[in-house]
Amino acid sequence: MAYSEKVIDHYNNPRNVGSFQKDAEDVGTGIVGAPECGDVMKLQIKVENDTIVDAKFKTFGCGSAIASSSLATEWLKGKSLEEAQKIKNTDIVQELNLPPVKIHCSVLAEDAIKAALGDYQKKATDKKSKPAEAAASS
């Protein structure tokens, strides 16, 4: 099976490596790990008006885990929060042609997306409730 150049590039030149300010209000951070192999993945999203405008990651693990996170960040950019929720690990497996032994890498990427979305939504909820709390306490 011939792999497309684009896909191979995720292995050789992973996209979107880096970090955002973790405490920033418009940033959601997900840090997850795979207990089977000890890989750790940090994935961050930057959100404007319920749309993901940028995404970055740092992954420490095998090539498949790095490629999975690289692909995930590419897919996230431009998606709405709702659309992002629908990304499944099987999509990543299919796109990267991961063999059975590396499926957990895609699971890790899906977990990281979910965790980043969760983190952002928690921040957003806290922000909304905070003024209300402040009003109640005064």
């Binding site: 840090i31 997850v32 790990g33 207990p35 750790v40 940090k42 740092k58 420490f60």
Partner: peptide, 16 residues
Amino acid sequence: RSNPPADLFEEVLELQ
């Protein structure tokens, strides 16, 4: 599957 050890993850990232 056990609870993800968040502090350990932070440590991994920092060490890396």
